[in-house]
Design a protein around this nucleic acid. Structure first.
Length: 478
RNA sequence: GGCGGCUUGGCCAAGGGGUAAGGCAACGGCCUGCAAAGCCGUUAUUCUCCGGUUCAAAUCCGGAAGCCGCCUCCA
């Protein structure tokens, strides 16, 4: 099976053929660590985590680099506002980021470099650009990249520099030769953090760190570079300019960009005050519900975060777990089976530009088929063929969960945790529930259905749904 | 002003030349004391609109409308 990937550079899907056989080099732009991460950061990270897992499933040896931008105006501003040291701020948010990503079951990348730990490399990179005439140093200490020195400027974003009326929205810096020239190094003001350089004390511009760090860990050319759609211009365009100007060879083979998360059909923005943080979402929903939501739509499309969608995803996840629990209860073994049609469908979807939405649909189809198989047996022992089919289904779903990072808990454990969480939130006493269920069982035995239904209604009002099965009554928290 | 994207049933959402996946919701049925869960069935002769290419278009081409994003920090 051939993996096909949508490449922003080509504006089309292409067969994925890495530079080196059996090895994939991937760089994804990580967060600027000056504030709490929001659901949009989570999408990018979860999407590339899925891509990372799928590449490994293809038996590639993947070197996955995701950076932390830990030197930046926003961090300095935050330090000025709070009086904290920059380092204290960045450390705090890196830890928070890691904790939240762990909660979302995101694998750690191979390397997580920080800009501040690569200043020497960045300076060398800038020097090289100046020496070859691609960058220039102006009075005051700024170093700019000259976009006129790079013929292909604009090839990623499909922009023509002449068409971009620079200065329309931001004042043009007089010192720049071309208004679109961008900063490689900027001088430090009084009290700002700085590093010594041939151009005086200062700090790197934003774009150069990614060129320098990706070069250090992945080489002059590498396979995949990812990030949010908004980074296409100017960030990634500028990275291409710097790296290709410096090394005269293709910087990145495949550019992958994920779409945005909207909140109730509006863009997340400070002015609307609708920044939705990962920690808020984690308080409200199971981590797997969040992950499943983020993967429920194709990664390049926008996705809308709202209560209804989250509830819908949650219901769907329950359904899958209920199926897994049912399989487990039937004593079906999922071990040591060859991949079946579910896996086939899933793999096909994933190979088509990481179509997790279609992959999840394949799981639901299997749940339906598997449930039907067990329903049809209607209490009779399942025949050998059915047992094998169901085992294969369970096995395929397990394999899929390893890629999507969802429904990988033990189903009984999942429902138990969900119950406990619900009870804790609503301060419900399980003993009281059990007592009511017992009373209802007695009422039913006595054919006192009025009382039995009254109890059921009472529990329903507490968001508890009863299920009468052959083995007695169980309950679920909605 | 420049560049890019989107428009599929009540809602969410795949598909992207060969006759409309999946989820949620709703309704009907089986099951149940009644429910819940599960299963079955129903809900798009049709994919924003108008032209064109083709034996064949939701899918390709041209045009229109609406929505959205980027061009400033942004995942």
């Amino acid at each position: 099976m051939t993996l096909r990937v949508y490449n922003t550079l080509k504006g089309d899907k292409e067969d994925f053929i890495p530079i080196q056989k059996d090895k994939v080099t991937m760089y994804v732009c990580g967060p600027t660590v000056y504030d709490t991460s929001h659901i949009g950061h989570a999408r990018s990270v979860v999407v590339f985590d899925m891509i990372y897992r799928w590449l490994m499933k293809h038996e590639y040896e993947v070197c996955y680099v995701r950076n932390f931008t830990d030197v930046d105006d926003k961090i300095i501003n935050k330090a000025n506002e709070t009086g904290e040291e920059c380092l204290a701020i960045t450390e705090k948010y890196i830890k928070e980021f890691h904790d939240e990503m762990d909660a979302l079951n995101v694998l750690r990348p191979t390397i997580e470099p920080k800009a501040t730990e690569h200043i020497t490399h960045i300076i060398k990179f800038i020097q090289q650009l100046i020496e070859s005439g691609k960058a220039y140093h102006v009075g005051g200490g700024d170093v700019y990249f000259s976009i006129d020195s790079f013929d292909e400027y604009g090839k990623l974003s499909g922009r023509n520099p002449d068409d971009m009326r620079a200065g329309a929205r931001i004042a043009v810096d007089e010192k720049k030769r071309n208004p679109l020239d961008f900063t490689l190094w900027k001088p430090a003001k009084e009290g700002e953090p700085y590093w010594e350089s041939p151009w005086g004390n200062g700090r790197p511009g934003w774009h150069i760190e990614c060129s320098a760090m990706s070069h250090e860990y992945l080489g002059k050319s590498f396979d995949i570079h990812g990030g949010g759609k908004d980074l296409i211009f100017p960030h990634h365009e500028n990275e291409i300019a710097q790296s290709e100007a410096a090394f005269n060879q293709l910087y990145v083979k495949y550019w992958i960009h994920n779409g945005f998360v909207d909140i109730n059909n509006e863009k997340m923005s400070k002015s609307l005050g609708n920044f939705t943080m990962i920690k808020e979402v984690l308080e409200k929903y199971f981590p797997e519900v969040i992950r499943m939501f983020l993967l429920s739509k194709h990664y390049r499309s926008p996705i809308d975060y709202n209560e209804d969608s989250m509830k819908e995803v949650s219901t769907g996840l329950d359904r899958i777990y209920a199926f897994l629990e049912r399989i487990q209860a039937a004593g079906i073994q999922a071990e040591g089976v060859d991949p079946g049609p579910t896996w086939q469908d899933f793999a096909e979807a994933m190979d088509d530009d990481f179509n997790s939405a279609r992959g999840i649909a394949a799981v639901f189809e299997t749940v339906k088929k598997g449930n039907k198989l067990m329903d049809d047996a209607a209490g009779e022992a399942l025949n050998d063929a059915d047992v094998r089919t169901l085992g294969q289904m369970a096995n395929d779903i397990k394999e899929i969960s390893g890629i999507l990072g969802i429904f990988l808990l033990d189903p009984t454990e999942y429902f138990r945790t969900k119950k406990e969480k619900g009870m804790a939130a609503d301060a419900i006493d399980p003993q009281q529930i059990d007592a009511l269920i017992e009373e209802r069982a007695q009422a039913r035995k006595d054919k006192n259905f009025a009382r039995a239904d009254e109890i059921r209604d009472q529990l329903q009002a507490m968001n508890i749904t009863l299920e009468d099965g052959p083995g007695g009554t169980t309950w679920k928290f909605e």
